[in-house]
Amino acid sequence: MGISVRGVTKRFGEFVALDDVSLDIPSGALTALLGPSGGGKSTLLRIIAGLESPDSGVVEIAGTDATTLPPQRRNVGFVFQHYAAFKHMTVFKNVAFGLEIRKRPKDEVRKKVKELLELVHIEKFADRLPSELSGGQRQRMALARALAVEPEVLLLDEPFGALDAQVRKELRAWLRRLHDEVHVTTVFVTHDQEEAMEVADTIAIISAGRLEQVGTPDDLYDHPANDFVMTFLGPVTTLSGDLVRPHDLELRAVPDAETTEATVVRVMRLGFEVRVELVCAGQDLWAQTTRENADRLDLQAGRTVHVARTTSATGAPDPQPQGAGTQTAR
């Protein structure tokens, strides 16, 4: 097992940041901790790194109990949202830092740093100061710095959060490729579900200090454990009191046993997608459909349609089971 977290609880004064969280992260996987801001995912990452200590519970890294180890002894690589670049050191010195602390021979340090700078494509900037780099370059430098000491696990705290949308997209794809090359157990924190779905092998959803669900991106999207997970991972609307994804709603001209009658309020054409706002028994809902469907049904405000769930529709089971035991990815 790469990382094993058992029964971890952390309070900041009255605020419960983590409430009895248990999670196993397999060796070599790329795992996302996903959840809303303030939900405790960064705290969990910092507890794994040893930057916070849990009030109770155990953290194991590569089979060793690390709960009381200081960050220096955990052999983790940590990448901060705002890079935490050593401002007074050149890019080279930044990446070499961990190796110099370990008193590695100068030649080895130079060779290793050069390799890493090539790996993250900033070899040209080795002699620059961090202030002379762009945000994306700084973040890649921070990553090279963390990888230089060959950590047991790589931990990234909202690594792309401070970058603009275009750079963020590039770095996501690049992180995925990098992980496929360097098989280090990697955990990254994000509040962006699209980022998690795109990059991670496994997603752990954390909200209000609790672990909601762990699984592959497909698992979570298709079989959400509860309404929260379903709501967080994609758009939802309500049909007859049940949560349902708008693209799982089928609009028909003819009623049958499965359909519910609804009135069209507004039709929005967004390119290929058509978004239909409806009222059903006094309740607002909306459906996603294709341009072709919309034309076929001649959708316009005031028209009556009949709404059904598609056969493959996903939904959260109820009542919601709250898994207090260990959830293992995959």
Binding site: A62, P70, Q72, R73, K103, E115, L119, D180, H183, V184
Partner: peptide, 24 residues
């Protein structure tokens, strides 16, 4: 792009030297 076998850098996690690095 996935090059599972050809890792460009030799990667072998090791514990840092066992100096007495205590917490603050």
């Amino acid at each position: 792009m996935t090059q599972v076998e050809a890792a460009p850098i030799a990667y072998r996690p090791t514990r840092p030297p066992g100096r007495s690095v205590r917490r603050s």
